[in-house]
């Protein structure tokens, strides 16, 4: 498939090379001012038009060899502003003999004339034909009075890039001064002194704390607290639930035993 395409392209290239090319002959340019003053030129580089000047352009399209006039099936004048990218294309009528005439009246400009600034409009002639090679001629630079800037497309608002979204975040939380934190941190500890002081005064007696019935229960409770502390430091939820579940079994047994013993003591004392 690809090969076929390439082959066709190559054949076409050969064909165009063989085809006769077109040329523009007798270009004549006339600018008629508002005061009827005329300026004629064969091939000027730049043309300046006032707000009410009229530009007339005549030429003949002919074969490069032989000079026989031809009528190309497409003839356009293209006005393009290279700075802004605005452009307008105006078809030009050509007689069967190849003669063409174009008139640009600045008082009533054609719709194809693009909006302009002070930059020049490049005017080029584009010719297309079935039998001849296509041709494009840069004619001249045209200076026309500046117009209003081009109107914006109604959808442009919708599809234009939006200003970047800037997120507003909550203000960063104020962390109090270290000294204040430290002071309160120390302050939290003083109830401990109150507690220990009172306990010292009351003097609780724990006669059975170290008896073999009680120790396992106390140890398992301490283990639970240790496990939870470990959870805070390191463990994940699943692990702590697993370990806690395992630990719960011996603690329950130890607790049952310890509390049964205690209740025995209590009732015995009574």
């Amino acid at each position: 498939m690809n090969l076929v395409l390439r082959l066709v392209a190559a054949l076409l290239a050969v064909a165009t090379a063989h085809a006769a090319s077109l040329s523009v002959q007798n270009p004549l340019l006339t600018v008629t001012g508002a005061d009827a003053s005329q300026l004629r030129s064969e091939s000027p580089e730049t043309v300046k038009l006032g707000p009410s000047d009229v530009l007339k352009l005549t030429f003949q399209v002919a074969e490069a060899e032989g000079g026989k006039g031809v009528q190309p099936h497409q003839t356009f004048l293209r006005f393009s502003d290279e700075a802004t990218g605005e452009e307008g294309v105006q078809p030009v009528r050509v007689t069967p003999g190849g003669k063409a005439k174009f008139e640009l009246n600045m008082a009533r400009p054609p719709a194809s004339l693009p909006p302009t600034t002070t930059n020049p409009l490049k005017v080029s002639l584009i010719l297309g034909s079935f039998v001849h090679a296509p041709a494009q001629y840069e004619l001249f630079d045209l200076y026309v009075p500046a117009s209003h800037p081009p109107p914006t497309h109604p959808d442009e608002v919708a599809f234009a890039p939006r200003p970047e979204i800037t997120h507003t975040f909550r203000p960063e939380q104020r962390i109090p001064a270290k000294a204040v934190s430290a002071f309160f941190g120390a302050f939290v500890f003083w109830p401990w002194f109150v507690l220990l002081g009172f306990w010292y005064e009351i003097g609780p007696r724990v006669p059975h704390l170290l008896s073999p019935h009680i120790v396992p229960f106390v140890v398992s409770l301490a283990a639970f607290e240790g496990l939870l502390f470990w959870y805070w430091v390191d463990l994940r939820l699943g692990q702590v639930l697993l370990y806690g579940g395992i630990l719960a079994i011996p603690s329950t047994l130890a607790g049952k035993q310890a509390l049964a013993k205690t209740s025995e003591w209590r009732l015995g004392r009574k």
Binding site: W192, V194, F198, W199
Partner: peptide
């Protein structure tokens, strides 16, 4: 009970 009460006091103060 006093023992427990002091603990309560401690917790309240904290």
């Amino acid at each position: 009970l006093k023992l427990i009460d002091t603990l309560l006091l401690f917790l309240m103060l904290s």
